[in-house]
């Protein structure tokens, strides 16, 4: 039997959709019993959301003032205190999960598996390496807990409709004071979330400035889409870092991805491999993005994008 502890990602009031994807992955393990741990200062609200996820058998709510902000150095010893009962410890392959799970693994003196994209058995998994240019099948030692991150773009979120019990847990672990949260600067917008949106429109270096990104936002608005960007566009300061799509940004799997003025470097393509349909608009017909695009349109984006927005609006 597999006993899995999923470490939930949340912002204090809502459960991040990455958690439901981890649960979906966990439920693929043979004969899985899935628990979700909520570390928070006041976790009721988030725990209630986790309890609704299908396949979840139990939610553990660990309330502690120090858990207000998700610092790996603070959370890891608490997870380790719970770890003894579990065969698998999973977190999402988001910045939250990557920061935390490797620290947990090292405290447990085990290796960590990154970016599970498929479960082949209780100790056998597939994961991408070399920016997704190779898929590796890995086996973990059967006598040690599997500590892993789950590649969220490979999984559909577990459905809601469950009513799992929530248990309040106290953990006496001593927590370090050497790491302190100061501030989170987030460009909160009313737009759909890049990581879960069904449609994403991304702009690249070709936009040439942050004002010009307006045409990308307008197209996104008529499609109800989230907005992303290439690294070049982020580096140039046209848009904030949280919008970067790719190997070192967000790995996404929307039904429709529209790449505007993006050349299609391998590192960018890594982030969109799992998209349903890829549309590319680029003035260079030899741009590598056309090698992977399902539908390509060659021409000047400053003319084509407003035209497309107009055509879709009517």
């Amino acid at each position: 039997m597999s006993k899995v502890l999923v470490i939930a990602e949340h912002d204090g009031s809502s459960l991040n959709p990455s958690t439901a994807k981890c649960v979906a992955c966990a439920s693929e393990l043979p004969d899985a019993e899935v628990h979700v741990a909520i570390f928070s200062d006041h976790g009721e609200e988030v725990a209630a959301q986790a309890a609704q996820l299908e396949s979840v058998n139990k939610v553990l709510q660990i309330d502690r003032a120090e858990n207000k902000h998700p610092l790996a150095a603070i959370l890891a010893p608490q997870v380790v205190a719970l770890a003894g009962k579990y065969s698998h410890l999973f977190g999402p392959s988001t910045t939250f999960g990557k920061d935390l799970m490797a620290r947990i693994a090292a405290l447990l003196k085990v290796n960590q598996l990154s970016d599970i994209m498929s479960v082949e058995g209780a100790n056998r998994f597939k994961r991408p390496v070399y920016a997704g240019n190779a898929i590796l099948t890995v086996e973990t030692p059967p006598d040690k807990p599997v500590v892993a991150t789950v590649r969220t773009a490979s999984y559909q979120a577990a459905e809601s409709g469950n009513n799992a019990p929530v248990e309040n847990i106290e953990i006496a672990a001593e927590l370090p004071r050497h790491t302190r949260f100061l501030e989170l600067k987030t460009g909160k917008s009313d737009r759909p979330d890049l990581q879960t949106a069904t449609t994403v429109v991304s702009g690249g270096r070709a936009l040439g400035g942050s004002e010009n990104f307006d045409i990308i936002y307008k197209l996104a608005d008529v499609l109800g889409a989230a907005v992303g960007a290439s690294r070049a566009a982020v580096d140039a300061g046209y848009v904030p870092n949280e919008m970067q799509v790719g190997q070192t940004g967000k790995i996404i799997a929307p039904d429709l991805y529209i790449a505007v003025g993006i050349s299609g470097a391998i590192q960018h393509l890594t982030g969109i491999k799992d998209a349903g349909t890829i549309v590319a608009i680029n003035k260079d017909e030899d741009a590598p993005i056309f090698e992977v695009a399902d539908i390509g349109l060659v021409g000047d984006l400053f003319k084509l994008v407003p035209e497309l927005t107009e055509a879709l609006a009517t």
């Binding site: 988001t94 790491t179 600067k185 990581q195 904030p240 967000k250």
Partner: peptide
């Protein structure tokens, strides 16, 4: 730190 939600600032000893 560049995190998924934006930029997080922390202090470490």
């Amino acid at each position: 730190r560049e995190v998924d939600a934006g930029l997080e600032v922390i202090e470490v000893d």
